[in-house]
Amino acid sequence: MRGGEARGEAPALVLEGVHKSFGEEEVLKGIDLIVEPHEVVCLIGASGSGKSTLLKCVNLTEPVDSGRIVVDGEEITAPGVNVNRVRQKIGIVFQAFNLFPHMTVIQNITLAPREVLKKSRKEAEGRALELLERFGLLDKRDEYPDRLSGGQQQRVAIVRALAMRPSVMLLDEVTSALDPELVAEVLGVIRELAGEGMTMLIATHEMGFARDIASRVCFLDEGRILEQGPPEKIFSSPENPRTRRFLQRIIAAGRL
C-alpha cells in the first residue's frame, strides 16, 4: 500500500464528519476519510450513494452542511476561505468532459494557468505541450474539442486539470460516458498518474480498474462509508453484508 510509506507527511486530504443534504434528502451522512499523499482511493457504490456529491464537496462546488475538509493541512471549509485559490490545488475531472468547445485543445489547457496562475503564454504552453506529448495528444494541440473522440476529449480534460499542478486529483466516473473501446486509453492515463505518485480520489464503476489501481477502496452506501480497505480485501472477502450484496450484483452484471 503506497499510502503507508508516506510517513511524517501531513495527509493530502481529510474529511471529518461531512454532512450534506439537498432539501430534505440527506445525501452524505457523516463522511470520515483520510487520503495520504500519493494514495489512490477509489470510491465504489451504487448509483445515488453520494460519490459525486462527496467529490463536489471536496471541490467546494457544493457547500457542506457540517464537518470539516482539510487539504494539504489547510481547512477549506473554514469561513472566509478563498474558493478560487483552493480549487487551484484540487483538480477535478467530470464524466461529461466539459471541454470549452470554442477553444482549441491548447487554449483549453492554458486558460486557467494563464488567467488564474498568471503564467506567461510561453510558460503555460510549454507545460501544456509537455503534458500533451506525454499522453499522446501532441498532434491534437490545435484541434477543437468536437473534432476529437470521446476518449481524446477526456484525456484532454485530465491534462487541463493537471496543467494547474494540483496536489489532489478528483475523478468522477471519467469513463462512464465513453464507448467501451475508448475506456482503456483513459484508464491508461490514470494508471500513469498513479505510477507517478499523484494523489487521487476516484469515483468509479470500473471494478477491475479499481482493484488494479487503488491503494484503498471505500464502499459508499446511502451516504456512509460502510467499509474500506485494500482492494484485495474488499473485493475478495468483504465484511459488510451490504458490500457483499453490492459486489454480487456487480459480478452478476458481468462487470468484475
Binding site: T61, N84, R87, I92, N98, F100, A112, V116, R160, A161
Partner: peptide
C-alpha cells in the same frame, strides 16, 4: 451550466 462549473473548478473567478 456545466461549462461554468468546469471553469470554476479550474479556479477561474465568476467574472473570468
Amino acid at each position: 451550466v456545466s461549462q461554468n462549473a468546469a471553469a470554476r473548478s479550474l479556479g477561474l473567478s465568476r467574472w473570468q
